[in-house]
Design a protein around this nucleic acid. Structure first.
Lengths: 235, 235
DNA sequence: AGGAATTTGTGCGTATGTATC
DNA sequence: AGATACATACGCACAAATTCC
């Protein structure tokens, strides 16, 4: 196996908590135990747990209130990411999470000209993981004619929930590339999945090279992942 | 004076560093002293300084490299925020900083119909501070016809630099409201400044109420500031 | 209304790991 | 290989906000 040194504890904790919330084991509004109790149960120092909790809060899944407690923020179960997330079927039921890399308003590629009347579109690039393992890069285009207010913060949770309830737009294209760790060389016809309940269709997107990792995100670990993706393009 | 409990040390340190960088005292590429030395000089614990450095890094003004050092990231002096920031003239040379609260694509108010052909515009709301003291709320509209890729991350540094170099658009309207601490009641005719080198003009913008603080940002302090602004609207 | 208990936030100091030089 | 420097992790003490009695 590759020389994979373990991730830091606070990252492991953060991802564990996110998976617990995404899976519905921690429902919306639920209050976590006091940090000291939680840290004792998990066998870590309070400061380490707090760093993980700050990470979950930054992803919008937790509400931390001084003097009160840590409260889970998650959409109800009916809007679970499971409803629209098809990747897990190919991996045996892992828990999906996502991380937005970039949201840009760009001229729409010709391949999508027939969908929507606008000459521009919103391009969203996300990393998708199952059980914390990076498995896919996702590129999605939304038609630009909608009065869309798109920002990274809006997309940090369940992207599809955002589509249906907040935006009400049509997905122009969804491309899923499936891989294992380490990611194999990318080929144009890797995987194309029909996207379930979403009113849209599948189309291959020509992948433009990613910007520098530093432009995508701010933490060391995010940058690592971005570099990882960059290697995909060279395959 | 009002009961102003001091801000936490790590926030004070963070804002001090940001001002030092914005003023050009720490030039682009400069390497900071080792964290232990720096913490000793400043009379704080290393962990406290590290929290401040993480904050500066999150704002894109610092590059932290393990095993190497902390490196300043800043635009060259010719593009200093001073070139386009007029507020400081009224306060005696304070160092301006800004924080983006919201970036939305919305139908353009009728008052701006004569500028630009598009019916939509990008509304940007920023807090502006001098020497760390909050003094103004800024609302700016850009015409939506431009192929603008607007996201909060693009605006975190110098907004005017972004206008001129990255976007190349015309500022539809700029409204500056000047105040002191505590912020006085807002009145429609508070202050309207001609915006210097910017090709645009000044117009009063009817201020729509801010969303909930939680929608703007994630940290406790950002939320505090948002609440502070809310009180302005009621004055 | 008020005060005690609970819970998170801040700050400190230290030891060890890991990347860079 | 050694030295330097940032990253992680631990534990503790006190402050501040909330909640409860």
């Amino acid at each position: 196996m590759a020389k994979t040194s373990a991730l830091p504890k606070f990252i492991q904790l953060s991802e564990m908590l996110i998976r617990e919330i995404a899976a519905g084991h921690l429902t919306d509004g639920a209050r976590l135990p006091p940090e000291r109790d939680m840290a004792d149960d998990l066998g870590v120092a309070v400061g380490t747990l707090r760093k993980a909790l700050a990470d979950v809060e930054a992803k919008g899944l937790l509400d931390r209130v001084q003097g009160s407690g840590n409260y889970v923020r998650h959409r109800p179960a009916v809007d679970s990411v499971y409803a629209f997330f098809r990747l897990e079927l190919l991996k045996g039921g892992g828990l999906p999470t996502a991380q937005v890399l970039a949201v840009d308003r760009l001229p729409k590629p010709d391949a999508f000209g027939q969908l929507g009347g606008h000459h521009e579109g919103h391009r969203i690039i996300r990393l998708r993981s199952l059980d914390g393992v990076l498995i896919a890069l996702e590129e999605i285009w939304l038609d630009g004619a909608q009065p869309a207010q798109i920002a990274v913060s809006d997309l940090s949770d369940s992207l599809y929930h955002f589509y249906r309830h907040d935006l009400g737009v049509i997905i122009a294209s969804v491309e899923d590339r499936i891989g294992v760790d380490p990611m194999p060389a990318w080929t144009p016809d890797a995987f194309h999945l029909k996207s379930g309940e979403i009113a849209g269709y599948i189309e291959r997107v020509s992948w433009t090279a990613a910007k520098e990792p530093a432009e995508f995100s701010r933490t060391w670990y995010d940058a690592k992942r971005a570099v990882y993706i960059s290697r995909m393009g060279k395959g």
